[in-house]
Simulated assay, not measured.
Amino acid sequence: MESKNSLFGKCPYFTAQKIFSGKWSILILYHLSDGALRYGELQRGIGNITQSTLTKQLRMLEDYGLISRYVYSEIPPRVEYSLTDLGKAFDPVLEQFRIWGNKYIESLKNE
């Protein structure tokens, strides 16, 4: 996936930046943090995201092992996405993003 000389998998900051570089990655993880969601539920929850972008981001997060995709053998097929244990380990980071984001929003109001 990465070149031999890449810092991916060697430097924690570079690795995290690479994994979460997708514009919607953090929001996807946030929405899945409360439990499994179907594709349409996830898309509606996020809002202004195209199908192709959501699909690309979901595949990327699945490739990195942060989410899992479960296809039910039904007609029509039903697909659910959920966090893996590694994805759930990101929950404390999401909480810190929420805290910091609220502080930043508050500082904008005081300008």
Rank of each mutant, 00 (worst) to 15 (best):
N102E: 15
Q51I: 04
I99D: 07
D91A: 11
K4R: 06
S6E: 03
N110F: 02
E106A: 14
R69I: 07
L108E: 10
D91Y: 07
A89R: 09
T53E: 14
Y72T: 00
K23Y: 08
E95R: 14
E95I: 10
I19K: 13
G35Y: 06
F97T: 04
Y72Q: 09
E111Y: 02
S107I: 02
G47Y: 05
L37H: 09
Y70D: 07
A36E: 13
L27S: 11
Y104M: 14
V71P: 00
G9E: 02
L32Q: 06
T15L: 09
L42Y: 03
W24M: 13
L58I: 13
F20Y: 12
L108K: 12
L7K: 11
M60K: 15
L83S: 01
F8N: 09
G22E: 11
A89Y: 01
M1R: 03
L29E: 01
S3A: 04
F20I: 07
F20G: 02
L86M: 10
E74A: 11
L86E: 13
N102W: 07
F8W: 14
E80C: 00
E2H: 05
K18H: 13
F90Y: 13
I75M: 11
D63I: 01
Q51F: 03
K88P: 00
S25C: 15
E62T: 03
P92K: 09
F97L: 13
A16N: 04
S82C: 03
S82Q: 10
T84N: 09
Y70K: 13
L54D: 07
I99H: 04
F97P: 02
Q17V: 06
S52D: 12
N48P: 00
P12I: 10
R69E: 15
K18I: 03
Y13E: 10
L37N: 07
E95M: 09
I49L: 02
I49D: 01
C11H: 15
I67E: 03
K103N: 10
R59C: 03
Y104S: 07
L42P: 03
A16T: 12
E41A: 07
L61V: 06
E62Y: 01
K109F: 02
R38Q: 15
R98Q: 04
K103H: 06
S52F: 05
Y13S: 12
S6R: 02
H31W: 12
Y104F: 15
S107M: 08
E80K: 05
R78Y: 03
